[in-house]
């Protein structure tokens, strides 16, 4: 998406656009911290499982509930499995799910927003009422109900989270489209006889990219929390899948004896979400100062 933006940006040379993104990522210390955290997590998710000497599913009942040690830096769980290894496998799962769900939300929402904003009329009216209705529900509650009725599984959680989360993108994109639509260069190219689709591609999309990317970055954290939360409630990944929320849930019977079972996944979820939030905040401040208030409201 951002590549399209760079290539079709009406006024800026390609290099300047990329430089803007790079600068946005490195302006403040906190943003750098966020970018660092996110990169580190991706590295752990990609390489961690290969490096770890343990099998995430191999039970070793002789070593159950062992406290953190050199052999098991984050201890073992009630079935003697290495917690760190399971967390690393879980990172792969959580990041993958979060990105997939966010991508679906983003595409769906952007498409709806573009259509509503550009076509206008009753189509706009109908789509926006749908958006209102969706936004009228607290997201997790709705996702919980949808996932629950579909039946407990990680796929259903993903579907549910994607279905409930696209509405804010639609609203954001629609308002960006409306504000861009009336601007002179759009009118000018319409007058020059360009087709609607052409105008859309050339002028509107580049202008909505920045706010949408910011929203998506902030959203990834939310999706991670949502997946973990639903899994925690028993609707998502089922044991023995090493999903963070599921691991946390199965650790709750050992709060007194094995505190690391809930805290290790807890800390990791927090760090991940924290990283994406820092990154999103930094991007927002750097890329769209005028739109920041707008995004905050969503």
């Amino acid at each position: 998406m951002s590549e399209d933006a760079a290539n079709s940006a009406p006024h800026r040379p390609v290099g300047a656009r990329w430089r803007r993104w790079y600068e946005a990522l490195t302006t403040t210390r906190l943003t750098k911290l966020g970018a660092g955290l996110v990169c580190a997590l991706f590295a752990l998710a990609v390489f961690g499982p290969a490096v770890s000497p343990y099998d995430p599913a191999a039970q070793a009942l002789a070593h159950r509930l062992e406290a953190p040690s050199l052999a098991h830096p984050l201890g073992t769980d009630q079935l003697g499995r290495d917690v760190l290894t399971r967390l690393l496998h879980g990172a792969r799962l959580s990041l993958g799910i979060a990105i997939a769900v966010t991508a679906v939300r983003l595409s769906l929402g952007t498409a709806v927003g573009l259509v509503a904003g550009y076509v206008g009329g009753w189509v706009d009216e109908a789509l926006m009422r749908l958006v209102d209705t969706l936004l009228a529900f607290p997201g997790i509650v709705l996702a919980l109900v949808i996932a629950g009725i579909l039946g407990p599984s990680l796929t259903n959680v993903m579907v549910a989270l994607a279905v409930v989360g696209w509405a804010s993108y639609a609203r954001l994109v629609r308002s960006s489209v409306l504000s861009v639509r009336e601007r002179e260069f759009v009118t000018a190219s319409r007058l020059l006889g360009r087709s609607r689709a052409h105008v859309l591609g050339r002028h509107l999309i580049p202008n909505v990219v920045a706010p949408v990317v910011v929203l998506a970055t902030l959203d990834v954290g939310g999706v991670i929390l949502g997946t973990a939360g639903l899994s925690f409630l028993g609707l998502g990944a089922q044991p023995p899948t090493p999903e963070w929320g599921t691991m946390l849930a199965s650790g709750r019977n050992y709060l007194r004896t094995a505190w690391w079972l809930v805290n290790a996944p807890g800390v990791l979820i927090m760090l991940t979400v924290f990283g994406f939030n820092l990154l999103g905040d930094g991007l927002r401040d750097a890329l769209s100062p005028t739109q920041s208030a707008h995004i905050e409201q969503l």
Binding site: G245, L255, G266, L278
Partner: peptide, 18 residues
Amino acid sequence: ALVGVSMPNFWLGYLLII
């Protein structure tokens, strides 16, 4: 505040319980 936003409340709950 940023840490607070990022903290999953189910974990915070267990942390407080512990």
